[in-house]
């Protein structure tokens, strides 16, 4: 097979852009799973809700997805506390949350999926917007708008999460609550509130990531499952509770996948995320940025 520099450059740029989107998907998992120990494998279901709401908003009300995602972020933050309260009452309060939580969220995933199938059918849906089909040429490298926009939005979103977690008082308690719940009380903070805020942020990022997904590619209700493995792989590779780690790991995964797709064949690229996951667990279990 003949490989040119142009092909390589294109694959790497495409990988970084794709990685940006993966970061948007994984940041919610990093917060919920990495920081709160909530095994939210229903995160992709939240994404699918976001994706179909963006579809509905554009085709029924004519609302541009860029506006929809801002609204959905707000909605996620607003309903997140109620969802967390439900999860806390049903699962967390009783202890043994890892196993029961897993089953609980697996159930949620299926219920959401079936609900979407019943509402929208099993066909692929896509957003038809003229600005998405534009392509920017940078020398030999072409950058499609449908990849660039999600990348930019994802970076802004991860940046906001990082700033909130490290530079606000409540944000910092989220970093602390995973380590010692009682000690959080001793600095005068309510750990339940910290968890509730964090969970809400995770939900909001999931909804936005869903909108980004439908900008990138057509979606059908069960497509979200493809991202469970990737999101958790990115989360572990990055170092469980690290935002910078998540972004870096997402880029690595994105580049690895596009390189594999261009050099070996697209059918191999999903194997990459699990391969990376296994290698991380074998050689650096704490992840790239793990503390």
């Amino acid at each position: 097979m003949y490989v040119t520099w142009d092909l390589m450059a294109n694959a790497i740029v495409a990988g970084i852009l794709l990685g940006g989107f993966y970061a948007a998907v994984a940041v919610g998992v990093t917060i919920a799973f990495g920081m709160l120990d909530i095994v939210n494998i229903a995160h992709p279901a939240v994404m699918m809700i976001g994706a179909f709401l963006a579809y509905l908003a554009l085709n029924t009300f004519g609302i541009d997805p860029m506006i929809t995602m801002v609204i959905l972020a707000g909605v996620g933050l607003a309903i997140g506390p109620f969802l967390y309260r439900g999860y806390h009452a049903l699962i967390e309060k009783r202890g043994d949350e890892s196993l029961q939580g897993l089953a609980f969220f697996f159930g949620i995933l299926f219920i959401v999926e079936i609900g979407l199938v019943m509402t929208f059918g099993v066909d692929y849906r896509a957003l038809e917007l003229s600005y998405l089909s534009k392509t920017f040429e940078l020398g030999a490298v072409s950058i499609p708008a449908r990849m660039l926009i999600p990348f930019v939005v994802a970076m802004i979103m991860c940046g906001l999460c990082y700033a909130y977690l490290f530079y606000t008082f409540t944000g910092r308690t989220i970093l602390a609550v995973a380590q010692d719940v009682e000690a959080v009380r001793l600095i005068g903070a309510d750990p339940q509130r910290s968890k509730s805020v964090a969970f809400s942020i995770a939900i909001a990022t999931g909804l936005v990531a869903g909108v980004l997904l439908i900008l990138i590619q057509p979606v059908e209700p069960s497509i979200g499952r493809e991202f469970i493995g990737r999101a958790f792989a990115v989360c572990v590779l990055g170092g469980i509770a690290s935002i910078t780690g998540t972004v870096t790991a997402a880029m690595i995964l994105g580049v690895a996948e596009t390189l594999t797709a261009s050099l070996i064949g697209p059918s191999w690229s999903p194997a990459i995320s699990f391969g990376l996951l296994l290698l991380t667990l074998a050689f650096r279990p704490s992840g790239i940025f793990g503390r």
Partner: peptide, 9 residues
């Protein structure tokens, strides 16, 4: 970071 957290109140 530990000290910052102390100033939550």
């Amino acid at each position: 970071e530990n000290l910052h957290l102390g100033a939550f109140r």
